[in-house]
Design a protein around this nucleic acid. Structure first.
Lengths: 344, 344
DNA sequence: CTGAAAGCGCTTACAG
DNA sequence: CTGAAAGCGCTTACAG
């Protein structure tokens, strides 16, 4: 009968014993660090490295980070589901982090309790810093608290003021309103909205898209018909089906504004497949400016940042991480714009 | 001149002092745990909780996890960019994890050194367990080592045998070959392949899609024309442009198999926009079976799992985490199938 | 019922 | 040049 060995992870003590040195020397060899002093001589280094290889030693993160008071890890928090923008930001963060020997974890935030659980990663200092993309369900008050406790934070938010963390302003409300204005100016009165599920129950900073839609319609005396607001923007199949259904109504809308480009693109396909011309029969506007919007026919009118690039924001996060003393908060711009193409 | 206060995180010592108790009591109150003994009386509990609230205490993950030898965190490693499947799995993992008070971090693996840096999260025991989706550039040998050291692992892989970790078999090679066979059986001889960038340099387990394509063509004596293999499957704009270019050639292909459904869908659009009938003028097969493939016209023929559900695999991960003694490895099935719809 | 103490695995200022 | 020792913030078996 085979005895199940308890899983064993070798520690620096094991390495030290094996190499006939102290744990201090092991640590010095492994880290390369050594205050100002000279590193251990080559012969010692070899002995340690051999022992490391023999037992397959890997440093233990808990021990190291407790001692060093840093985890060498940063997080990217973004609203689920992921998007080309969150993917791109993750990629850029990973590249910048890798240069410094840091790692990046992604935290896709859902609305559920499971999303809330992810905040633990920030609260319990699992990471040294984070970028927070807009529409994450995080209490704004908590952000300042986290920053005050030394977490490096770059936060995409149009309402929050910097306070020991940096804020990236996108001015999403203005841009979204411009998109709806664009439709109204073209004569549209029956304008549907494809929104996020639950969006009307979100706190105001998160529901900026829906609010912009309602606000502009109201300003123009257009009653927002509740049956034109559909929570399908996070699912392509749902969006497609919803728009097909809209077009079959007795009084179909003449325009659609969608909280996501993904759903907007499916709205375009639904219209095309229904034999409705875009924008002639149905004008379509997205929000987000994903690359895919450029290649559909007609190309997608949308709202978003023009540059598919976060290097300035990523650089700022690492600047903050590297800073000896806490940096005051700074405002950065990454303005959203109305990008008029062919679909509206 | 304002003095910049060093960021201060209160510790349990601070709480203990403030509440006039020992750190042991603070820990007992906070964790609710208490061996077999009775929990502290309500009055003590109140005092501690008040102090916690006053200073905004949050447990420190490094200290806790060093002592408890577990992080209460699991990871999902998946090949970047994200997909509806990786999003779905992340969501299901989060729900199951939240029920147990655990958190989930996502690790999008790229091919670069930055991707390699993510392995640190597993190697250094940043997490207690992980699900590894296929096509992650992880050395198979290392997986067994990690498992032996106590990391709970559920690995999607068609080649690896379970060995202290569980393996989910999808039989992707067979399914991909069936898709190409399907095209050949329909009489296609000029079949293009939209692949991942760098796919021909990947180790064999990762390049199963490209190999399946080449293998079936060869079996049927069809020479694979190198100019029909295009590395555009990870970018929708690239895929669209590539297929448009293919269709403009003197001798355009009559079929396309794409390593991703995303690119396959753009291939369908490109054909439609070019005035080429699908599947009449161009048959299109995807790989992956994303929900979007159901709503395009014509609906997408593809290869993938039928059920958009990972609950069995997720349950297994947590079973493994909960197990008192190391569990032997198990093989689970989540077979990919050829799903013939309208596009081929 | 509560607290003093040990110790998880590391790093690093310090002594020799 | 190297090692003994302290200590990061927790948890928990144990003594009182």
């Amino acid at each position: 009968m085979a005895v199940t060995e308890p899983p064993e992870r070798p520690t620096q003590r094991d390495i030290a014993r094996r190499a006939g040195v102290s744990t201090a020397t092991v640590s010095y060899v492994l880290s390369g660090r050594r205050g100002g002093a000279k590193p251990p001589p080559e012969e010692t280094r070899q002995r340690v490295m051999r022992a490391v290889a023999e037992v397959g030693y890997q440093v233990d993160h808990a021990g190291r980070s407790l001692r060093r008071r840093r985890s060498d890890l940063v997080a990217l928090m973004y609203p689920a589901p992921s998007s080309p923008w969150s993917d791109r930001l993750a990629e850029q963060m990973q590249e910048a982090a890798a240069e410094r020997g840091l790692g990046v974890v992604a935290l896709p935030m859902s609305d559920s309790a499971a999303g809330e659980a992810l905040l633990r990663v920030l609260r319990e200092r699992y990471v040294d810093g984070a970028v927070l993309l807009p529409d994450c369900p995080v209490d704004p008050d908590e952000i300042a608290v986290l920053a005050r406790q030394g977490l490096s934070l770059v936060v995409f938010d149009d309402d929050l003021d910097p306070d020991g963390f940096d804020v990236v302003r996108q001015d999403r409300g203005r841009a979204c309103r411009e998109a709806v204005e664009h439709l109204v100016a073209a004569g549209h009165r029956r304008i549907a909205y494809l929104g996020h599920p639950g969006e009307d129950r979100w706190r105001s900073a998160r529901s900026v898209k829906l609010r912009s839609y309602r606000q502009v319609l109201q300003q123009h005396g257009i009653g927002a018909a509740p049956d034109l607001v559909l929570p399908v923007a996070d699912s392509r199949p749902d969006a497609y089906a919803a728009v097909r259904e809209l077009l079959r109504r007795a009084e179909p809308p003449t325009a659609v504004v969608s909280a996501t480009d993904r759903a907007a693109i499916d709205a375009v396909w639904a219209a095309r497949d229904h034999g409705t011309a875009v924008p002639g029969g149905l004008a379509v506007t997205g929000i987000g400016n994903i690359p895919e919007g450029l290649v559909i026919k007609p190309s997608l009118t949308t709202v978003g940042a023009r540059e598919f690039d976060f290097s300035a924001q990523v650089a700022r996060l690492f600047e903050r991480l590297d800073a000896a003393a806490p940096l005051p908060g700074e405002v950065m711009a990454a303005r959203w714009e109305l990008i008029v193409r062919e679909s509206a």
